[in-house]
Write a protein that binds this DNA or RNA. Structure first.
Lengths: 135, 135
DNA sequence: TACACTCGATCCGGCTGCGTAACGAATTAG
DNA sequence: CTAATTCGTTACGCAGCCGGATCGAGTGTA
């Protein structure tokens, strides 16, 4: 079932989840690394360097390097494809699943708190509109 | 009103919005830059370097540099505080509001498509569980 | 067999971001 | 008035990521 978010809720959701992630001591993944990780874990396999490159509009070297990083974090594994031994398959790991599971909890938690301001940070009264442009 | 997302929905939401953002040609903001921008635009002013630093658990120099970047993108402005001229106030701009508005639309769109697979990408059949750990 | 092509990795120069330390300016304490 | 503190910025060395070009290995084709 779809979830309907207005602009304010969408931004608040993103802010809370992202802030929790930034504040935390987990590894700092770039937006691209995160996009790759999420694609591998939430889209149906198999995943290849080329497929990820085209799907996310990211150059192949960038994918390759991101997989290095994700691999050394233990979030992903490379495996040669036996039918086409040029190709590699990007595989999931338990460690990666745990990481994303915790991240998903942060997002869920952020959604749950929408319009019920966090008890510790000050409430979020009406917004002041953006100031005049700088140029 | 709160929004309840299970883990799969939370990850799918994040993946779709993040992928759209990565795929697009907008500026590539780091997680920290994005967290700062969202804080400035969705929390009540005033915002100072020190406040952002403490709130997000980011060193002051990092905040300062992020503001340089966000400022040169026109998403944010610095203004000296007249009551304490050591302090600066981080102000919003129209350009930044437009950027976040478009981003919010991507998030909303991602939420709207939950459990109704995108028409162009292949549908998202049941997930295969993560493979065994690599270690 | 010989040649073109595909796949992923690596090399290269450049750019961006990081934390620690030090700084000048402004404010506060004594 | 002087000294200590606070605010944000800058200097520095370091680490990571970027795209384009190039590479070797593997595959398809004639």
């Amino acid at each position: 079932m779809p979830v309907y978010l207005n602009q304010d809720d969408a931004l608040a959701l993103w802010r809370d989840a992202l802030s929790a992630s930034v504040r935390g001591d987990g590894p700092d993944l770039s937006a691209r690394q995160m996009a790759i990780l999420l694609t591998v874990y939430t889209q149906t396999p198999p995943h290849t360097v080329r497929g990820l490159s085209e799907g996310l509009n990211i150059s192949k070297p960038a994918i390759s390097r991101a997989l290095d990083r994700l691999g050394q974090l233990g979030f992903v594994r490379r495996r040669r494809d036996d039918y086409d031994r040029r190709s590699i398959e990007v595989q999931r790991t338990v460690k990666g699943a745990v990481f994303l599971s915790e991240f998903a909890d942060q997002v869920s938690e952020a959604g749950r708190e929408l319009d019920s301001p966090t008890p510790f940070e000050a409430g979020t009264p009406p917004q002041t509109p953006p100031e005049d442009p700088a140029y």
